[in-house]
């Protein structure tokens, strides 16, 4: 498989905080249409890994390529390939939902009519129709997360990175988000997601990246075994 076909490529990634190693020599790839779960106990480095991939944390060593681009050298090109929902999404409290989505569409250089239509579709999908005029500071945690999801999906990126995205969402919204993820994958988009809902990850993802004392890619029979007893296997890492 050629380099360009990989949506995400991570090689020998390491990251420490004040001399405490968090990620050690992490390497993996994500291919078009794949959904990969990032799993591990608290403090294993899941959010740190996702932060490195999305340009929020600078790795100490290693390389990252998203759609063939380095997020630290070509951040604006990476942005066209990446949709990211952080665990604690940032929104401008002084802007309304519509203003926020329009600003992001302009920053991405999207067609105004198409992006307005896509934003309206996403807002309707997540039950935010009628709330477009709300200031973001007035939104609940769940509503804020839905706006962040709409921002991530608005430009139909090739890679979706979702950090604890199901937190604070009601059940219908989770189901609609899962539908959107399936449509995204059907278009050839890839997904990398972390969540504490291990059952959901097991049903949604094709492979897993288990973080702990060392990073291990779980695929094939390893992934099937993990899906059989996710809690047991993940907590065993915690107590190593």
């Amino acid at each position: 498989m050629s380099q360009l076909q990989k949506v995400l490529e991570v090689a020998a990634l390491s990251k420490s905080y004040r001399r405490r190693p968090i990620l050690k020599d992490v390497s993996f790839e994500v291919l078009p249409g794949e959904a990969v779960a990032v799993i591990g106990p608290n403090g294993a480095g899941k959010s740190t890994l996702l932060g490195c991939l999305t340009g929020e944390r600078v790795p100490d060593a290693g390389t990252i390529r998203i759609g063939g681009f380095d997020p630290f050298h070509d951040s604006s090109k990476t942005a066209t390939h990446l949709g990211f929902v952080p665990e604690q999404p940032f929104l401008y409290g002084e802007l309304t939902i519509t203003e926020t989505l329009r600003f992001v569409a302009e920053a991405r250089g999207l067609d105004r009519q198409e992006s307005d239509a896509e934003s309206a579709r996403l807002l309707q999908l997540f039950g935010l129709s009628g709330s477009e005029g709300f200031l973001c500071r007035e939104l609940s945690q769940g509503m804020g997360r839905k706006v962040a999801i709409a921002i991530a999906l608005q430009h139909q990126p090739s890679l979706l990175v979702l950090d604890e995205v199901f937190n604070g969402l009601d059940l219908p919204s989770i189901e609609r988000l899962l539908d959107e993820i399936e449509k995204h994958r059907a278009r050839g988009g890839a997904v990398l997601l972390s969540s504490h809902d291990l059952e959901l990850l097991g049903s949604l993802c094709d492979r897993g990246l288990l973080l702990g004392n060392e990073a291990r890619v779980l695929d094939g029979s390893d992934w099937q075994s993990w899906k059989m007893a996710p809690t047991l296997l993940t907590s065993s890492i915690e107590h190593q």
Binding site: T54, G55, E56, S75, S76, A79, T80, L82, F84, F90, Y92, F103, V104, A107, R108, G109, I151
Partner: peptide
């Protein structure tokens, strides 16, 4: 600014 990384995510160049 609290929005520095957000702006980078949505494609604002340095």
């Amino acid at each position: 600014g609290g929005d520095d990384l957000f702006l980078s995510h949505v494609g604002i160049r340095a």
